[in-house]
Amino acid sequence: MTTTAQPVRTAVLEASGIEKSYRHGLRHRQNVLRGADITLLPGEVVGLVGENGSGKSTLMKILVGALRPDAGTVSIAGRLGYCPQEPVYYERLTCDEHFELFGRAYRMSQEAERRSRRELYAALGFERYASTRADQLSGGTLAKLNLGLALLADPEVLLLDEPYAGFDWDTYLRFWDLVARRREQGRSVLIISHFVADEERFDRIVHLRDGRT
């Protein structure tokens, strides 16, 4: 009997011993994260679940570099895409102009940016809003734009903070189609939420309690 060794998959995201606290007043200090760890492998879809106030968004901001931890390390291999819980947009820019702006920030060629933009409009179903200014979009369409901008450069690691909170059922299904395709392509996705309805769509569920995973 012979066995074939399985290739070792190197983590594309690895966070270890993450600690974070906030000072309230002169004496009180609130410990939010107390040594949280999380690892993401190529082609994995992982859910990070915790109650409101458990520190999920704080951990996500540390992972993307928007917040400095008090202790611990974070390493990411490859390009990172981030979809924050609250859409980040410029009110006077259209959807097309947002994609153009982010494409330049990602140093994408004009052809690559336009191709990716067309694919995302079709996948998420909001191409009719291409020339609409952001301040005239509904909350659900802003959520689609927010996700589209995170996906524009086809990142190896995609971090999503409550990504489908404003989606209708059709968009929710479209979202999971996109996630499934990314998994097939070896891309990795970390989704944080206060609850998980479809556990079978995830490879792993990580729970955040008392500042630890």
Rank of each mutant, 00 (worst) to 15 (best):
A77K: 11
Q110L: 10
E86V: 13
G125I: 06
E113W: 01
E86T: 13
A122W: 01
L124V: 10
L93C: 08
E127W: 09
S75D: 15
F126P: 00
M108D: 03
S116Y: 03
D96S: 14
S116T: 07
A71G: 11
Y106G: 00
F102L: 09
V74H: 04
R92L: 09
S75C: 15
R92H: 15
R79V: 09
I76N: 01
P84E: 11
L80F: 05
L80P: 00
C95V: 14
R104V: 12
L124Y: 00
R104K: 14
R107C: 13
Y89F: 15
F102H: 04
H98Q: 11
L80C: 07
P87W: 08
M108K: 06
E97V: 10
F126E: 02
S116K: 05
G103E: 00
C83D: 01
T73D: 11
F102C: 07
L120A: 07
C83M: 12
Q110W: 07
T73R: 12
S109M: 02
V88D: 06
A77M: 07
R79N: 08
L120M: 05
T94S: 13
R107I: 09
H98E: 08
Y90P: 03
L93I: 07
R104T: 09
G125C: 06
R104Q: 15
S75R: 15
L120R: 04
E100P: 01
Y121A: 00
I76C: 01
V74A: 04
Y106F: 15
E111A: 12
Y90G: 10
E111R: 08
C83Y: 02
L120K: 01
A112K: 02
E100W: 04
E86N: 15
E86Y: 13
A123V: 05
F102I: 11
R107Y: 14
E111H: 11
S116D: 06
F126G: 00
E97G: 10
Y121G: 01
R107L: 13
P87T: 08
R118T: 07
L120D: 00
G72Q: 08
R117D: 02
V88A: 10
S109C: 08
R117T: 14
Q85R: 08
A112R: 09
L93R: 02
G78V: 13
E111C: 11
E127F: 07
T94I: 07
P84R: 07
L120P: 02
P84C: 14
H98M: 13
L101I: 03
R114A: 13
E127P: 02
F99M: 13
C95L: 14
L101Y: 05
E91P: 10
S109Q: 01
S109E: 07
S116W: 03
R107H: 15
G72R: 03
I76V: 12
A77W: 07
R118M: 11
L80M: 13
R115W: 06
